[in-house]
């Protein structure tokens, strides 16, 4: 039997697009809780001497971090899995009330072909939870939509002092290969 292990080379192009769009928007800080769907952006952020790459213990840390970076004049983005959105709810009050720009990228679980039902309750509630906290949301289920939707979200976050989230659907993530 062939062992299942994460593929670490040849990330899909949309994953590379994410980092390119963030760089074009002047992002200097990437705060993240890891997910396989963010692997390319995290790898490139960690290797980029012009990027502050901050691994978090829990997702809401990134909201405070990016508020501080903005107070200091710099832009950032927060990468997480949909389960992490639940951890962020109260802290989202900070950017929403004080109108800090917040750009979130959320890889989805529990919304398409989920094999682990434990992921489904939060996955099904993710977009509604963000909207309840007045975070604007978009979602990409096809690779071609990732770059334009992220460009749109980043534009509205940084030019509107707004909280914006791009959800990366599980159909998109499904392109990830887990078996050699």
């Amino acid at each position: 039997m062939i062992a299942s292990q994460p593929e670490t080379i040849a990330a899909p192009d949309w994953q590379e697009d994410v980092y390119d769009v963030l760089k074009r928007h002047g992002v200097r800080h990437i705060a993240y809780v890891p997910d396989a769907g963010h692997a390319a952006a995290i790898r490139r952020a960690e290797a980029d001497p012009d990027m502050h790459s901050v691994v978090l213990t829990t997702e809401e840390e990134g909201i405070g971090y990016l508020a501080g970076a903005w107070l200091g004049g710099e832009r950032g983005a927060l990468l997480m899995q949909s389960s992490g959105v639940g951890n962020c709810i109260n802290t989202l009050g900070l950017p929403v009330y004080a109108r800090f720009p917040l750009l979130m990228l959320v890889t989805m679980r529990g919304d398409w072909a989920e094999f682990n039902g434990w992921q489904t309750p939060m996955g099904q509630a993710t977009e509604a939870a963000l909207k309840l906290m007045n975070v604007m949301t978009w979602r990409a289920d096809e690779a071609k939509d990732v770059a334009p939707l992220l460009h749109g979200a980043a534009t509205m976050a940084f030019n509107g002092d707004a909280a914006c989230a791009l959800l990366l659907g599980q159909r998109l993530i499904g392109e990830k290969k887990w078996v050699k």
Binding site: H29, H52, V54, E61, G62, I63, G64, Y65, L66, A67, G68, A69, W70, L71, G72, E74, G76
Partner: peptide, 8 residues
């Protein structure tokens, strides 16, 4: 964490 972002 706000302090960390600001200090950075």
């Amino acid at each position: 964490m706000v302090g960390l972002g600001l200090a950075t």
